[in-house]
Design a binder for these strands. Structure first.
Lengths: 327, 327
DNA sequence: CTGAAAGCGCTAACAT
DNA sequence: ATGTTAGCGCTTTCAG
């Protein structure tokens, strides 16, 4: 009994505004096909304001059959600044359509994505990478009306794979013909890492080069150093790192072995974290600018949602290499 | 008309299991005070399995008057690994109580925390730092049953402030008597930064030292270099950085000015990002192990939720300094 | 242009 | 031990 103020309901607003509950809904939802006279509308809005009324989301969802919640699955915490900007842009673009974005950190134990989706009754689930068919299935059964991007749809492409390709191509352009790939230690990053690695393999294949020598690089000096020795033994001359952090680990391993970049081994990272430009030497890396992608995606969501079931696809990230001094 | 399979409802399960809807609820919710015979329970569970039934969250929330959703406000994307572990632990501990954690990245435009709270009908909102009274108010009006930690409650303390204190104390212990504080560029970090800075000021005051010389350090060589010059002019001998990233910027600025740590200027970071141990020299920093805090908090949530309104408070992070080579 | 009425799927008394 | 019955607060035909 701390003072549980009863919830303000639509009925309260109606009473204060001197109209019926239905009318309140009409003005609040801008229901099409209803012409509300300005006076009535104003009175309703005022009452809403005065009572600090908030529609009860669950009730609305239950009645309308769909929520306005969009669930974004983020691969892992600590993604690069690119993802941050993507989220910002995406969230605010969605907000303008009346949609609310919530995030779920994938890889966190306890609750799977479909569980979360069901728990919040999300009507849309969005991922950075295309979802595989099984996941899409599960998500739909969990109540998601639309899921995207989905694997194999028209227009779908993997930004991560593209980015991987860019890394390798850059190294190849600069004369490196035997590449290495630096995998991060963390298992939860594995899936995304494989996507990026696939891009590197694409580039190698396209240039008729042998497949990259893949090594896990630990976030610890000795481990990193031994990985570097591994590459040297295989006469690798350029390594693509999963991300900038991994790239720095490689660089540390090289320092430990008395090697320097790019002379002994070229290194290219991914993400362009702020630190990349501050180290000595500054790191060559691949940057995403997903801001525009965020806006696109929001629009795709809006369209899919209104134009019924069919999930319109759009993904688009625009990776590009930022050349600094390690290649 | 892509084939919108109608939702499986509790009634369907009841029909298949040959019991009443109520009974289904009873077994699914383990409703106390009901003794369901094993046979019935099994039949219900089987039907649930067979139909792949999922209770409709909104309906449940609407009827029960509370959701099982816990909303965690994360200060900013790219927090250190400590936060990640906190989230993991917190999420899985909550899951065991049937609660689902969703995250909201604060500072993202578009939707404020109360908006999100209302959109998902979260019954609990949790933050890393105590919420100020205004926010608590807003959150409660948005439908949150419990909000924590709240400012000024018994047992509340600010882990960030504590961590700031630790930074300064470490510097002071090592003979630095004129401190600087390195603020990050990003405005959205300002609030948290001020919390950490307050801890540094506490320590200075406690040691009867002048207040720290506060400077914003840009993530760019020239800016960082000029900040460093600023400190040197004020004969600062040790600087506490907002986080490890900022610390690296300071280090870069020092390099630019031909200074080295800790000889010319001691630097201590915060977060202990993986890179901290890989640089040359490795960075002295403060690490959080919030895993246990995550579990504690989950328990506090569970208790608060069952024991009615009163929000039990618990926060607790356990920062400690990791001494490496920059101080 | 506005209101009345029928649910959405579930929980929680209250019977039985 | 199980079933019956009201709603939870809102959307949405369908009448006035």
């Amino acid at each position: 009994m701390t003072g549980s103020a009863k919830r303000v309901t639509r009925a309260d607003v109606a009473r204060v505004a001197g109209v019926s509950p239905t009318t309140v809904s009409f003005v609040l939802n801008d229901t099409p096909g209803q012409s509300i006279p300005p006076g009535t509308r104003r009175r309703v809005l005022e009452a809403v304001e005065r009572l600090d009324y908030r529609p009860h989301a669950s009730a609305r969802t239950l009645a309308a059959g769909r929520s306005n919640v969009v669930l974004l699955s983020i691969p892992h915490l600590s993604p690069g600044p690119g993802i941050t900007r993507f989220v910002e842009e995406f969230a605010s673009a969605l907000a303008q359509t009346g949609l609310t974005l919530i995030t779920h950190l994938a890889g966190v134990p306890g609750r799977s994505l479909p569980d979360v989706c069901a728990a919040v009754d999300a009507s849309v689930v969005v991922g950075i990478e295309p979802f595989d068919p099984g996941t899409v299935q599960a998500l739909r059964r969990a109540g998601a009306d639309i899921v995207l991007p989905a694997e194999g749809e028209a227009g779908t492409y993997s930004p991560m794979r593209h980015a991987g390709r860019l890394q390798a191509e850059h190294l190849i352009e600069h004369g490196r013909r035997r590449l290495g790939y630096a995998l991060p230690e963390d298992d939860r990053l594995r899936k995304m890492a494989e996507e990026r690695l696939a891009g590197v393999e694409d580039a190698c294949a396209a240039a008729s080069l042998p497949a990259p020598a893949v090594l896990v690089v630990e976030t610890e000096l000795d481990g990193a150093a031994s990985a570097v020795r591994g590459w040297i033994e295989e006469s690798v001359t350029g390594v693509c790192a999963y991300n900038d952090e991994t790239a720095f680990a490689v660089l540390a391993g090289m320092r430990e072995n008395g090697r320097t970049a790019p002379a002994d081994l070229a290194v290219i990272g991914m993400d362009d974290i702020p630190l990349a430009r501050l180290t000595d030497p500054p790191l060559t890396t691949v940057r995403f600018d997903l801001r525009e992608a965020g806006r696109h995606l929001a629009q795709a969501v809006a369209v899919s949602l209104s134009s019924g079931e069919p999930h319109l696809t759009t993904a688009a990230g625009f990776p590009r290499v930022i050349r600094r001094s390690t290649v």
